[in-house]
Amino acid sequence: MKKFAMLMLSLCAVTWLSACAPEVGSDAWCKQMKEKDSGDWTANEAKDYAKHCVFK
């Protein structure tokens, strides 16, 4: 039972830490998008990047 509790706690911690993403339009998000290959951007990401990072 103790091993199961530790396993569940570990899974929750990993899920919680990996779910963090910067808010669209924030400086961190703009920086992340600059580093991402523009060919991998979705249409919405490109629109949001132009709106929030280029035409501030």
Rank of each mutant, 00 (worst) to 15 (best):
M33P: 09
A43N: 02
G39S: 13
T42H: 06
S18F: 11
T42W: 04
G39F: 10
L7Q: 00
W16H: 05
S38L: 12
C20M: 10
K47E: 14
T42K: 08
W41E: 02
L17T: 04
Q32W: 11
D40H: 01
A21D: 12
V24K: 12
W16K: 04
C30V: 06
L11E: 04
V14G: 06
A21F: 12
A43D: 05
E23Q: 14
L7C: 01
L11G: 12
P22I: 00
L17N: 07
S38D: 15
G39P: 08
K34M: 06
D27R: 15
E45H: 07
L17Q: 09
V24F: 04
S10I: 11
A43Y: 01
L17D: 01
A19I: 08
A21W: 09
W29G: 05
K47P: 01
C30R: 07
D27W: 12
T42R: 04
C12L: 14
G25K: 04
S10P: 00
S26Y: 10
K31M: 00
L11Q: 02
D37K: 04
V14A: 15
E45D: 10
G25M: 01
S38A: 14
D40G: 03
Q32F: 08
S26A: 09
S18E: 09
A28L: 14
C30A: 05
C12A: 15
G25Y: 05
K31H: 04
C30H: 13
K34W: 04
T15R: 06
N44P: 00
T15N: 10
Q32E: 14
C30W: 12
K34I: 06
L11T: 02
K31C: 00
A28F: 09
N44I: 11
K31R: 04
K47I: 06
M8E: 08
A46C: 07
S38Y: 09
K36W: 05
E35N: 09
V14D: 11
C12N: 12
K47G: 00
D27E: 15
W16C: 06
V14L: 15
A43F: 00
W29V: 08
E45K: 08
A19W: 14
G25W: 05
K47F: 08
P22H: 03
S18W: 12
S38C: 10
W29I: 09
V24Y: 02
N44A: 13
L7V: 03
A28V: 12
N44Q: 15
